[in-house]
Amino acid sequence: MTLELRQDGRGTLRAETLLVLALSLGASAVSSLISFIGALTRPGGLKDQAATLNGSYAPGRPWLDLAWQLFGIATALVPVLLVAHLLTREGVPGLRALGLDRSRPGRDLARGALVAAGIGSAGLAFYLAARASGFNLTVVPEALPDVWWKFPVLILSAVQNSVVEEVIVLAYLLRRLDQLGWSPRASLLASSLLRGSYHLYQGVGGFVGNAVMGAVFVLLYRRWGRVGPLVVAHTLLDVVAFGGYALLAGKVGWLPTPPH
């Protein structure tokens, strides 16, 4: 009887994990794969095609566009709320159990800033090399209209991306895989490969670069036991990428822009 209950519990955790991924980044991975196949089979090289991260939903209609932007950011966070709910039902204090709280703000910010500085410089160099080699699309971090809400929306988008990815594909997934008896190495591979897969729409470089970043994040999460610093790091990386592109695109020669 005890064995049956244990097996039933593992089956429930496995099904729960698959459903959470199917509602969030697992679905994004499938969508990214389809997008990558489309880019590969389209005439022309990958670097002559563009992958836009933050685009307009209603060109020429700024207030409607803003409404869609905020709607998209809010609904993308729903799977995180689901994870918090599931953890609470498990008997732990929601996202605090993953280390996403305000108990150590100074340390989380400092660690996150250091991680972002290291990964950001290496990541930019890797992207430029991958694109020049023809393994990556031209990534367009933002293509929003020049309106008053442009930068606030980009910051909100960066926060949303970081919270969703680090809570689900890092902290939550590792917790569930540990409970299912996966080895640390297998969990690291699963988390980092999943992270790479939903960036495949950017090209092979996007897959490899994000998979490596995912492996680093897994090791740091295991060491610190908190996802907070990694949410900070990811947020800073995206804020710099989105805002930097908005300010520099077309003004510096080293930053790739879409072919006209």
Rank of each mutant, 00 (worst) to 15 (best):
A186F: 07
N136D: 15
L180C: 00
E165V: 06
W182S: 11
A116Y: 03
V147N: 02
L144Y: 01
L156N: 03
G118F: 08
A143H: 03
P141V: 00
L137T: 12
T138M: 02
N136Q: 14
L137Y: 05
A171W: 08
Q160D: 12
R175T: 12
V147E: 13
W149N: 12
P184H: 08
A122E: 12
V140R: 03
A117D: 02
L137F: 03
L128H: 02
V153S: 08
L109N: 07
N161E: 02
S187G: 15
G181T: 07
D178C: 00
L188I: 05
V159G: 01
L174S: 13
S183K: 13
L177P: 10
S183R: 14
I155S: 08
L109K: 07
G120S: 07
I168M: 13
D146A: 12
Y172I: 00
A186D: 11
L188C: 09
L137E: 10
P141W: 11
G134K: 04
P105G: 02
R185S: 02
G123R: 10
V139I: 15
P145M: 04
L114W: 13
L177V: 05
R175K: 15
Y172C: 01
A132W: 12
R107F: 12
G106E: 09
V159P: 00
I119L: 15
A186N: 09
L144W: 07
A171G: 08
A129M: 14
K150V: 06
A132N: 14
V167Q: 10
A122G: 13
F135L: 15
N136I: 03
R111W: 13
L188Q: 05
L170H: 11
L170I: 12
S183D: 10
L156F: 05
A143Q: 07
V147W: 11
I168V: 15
R107G: 06
I155E: 12
V139N: 11
L170P: 02
V163R: 07
L114F: 12
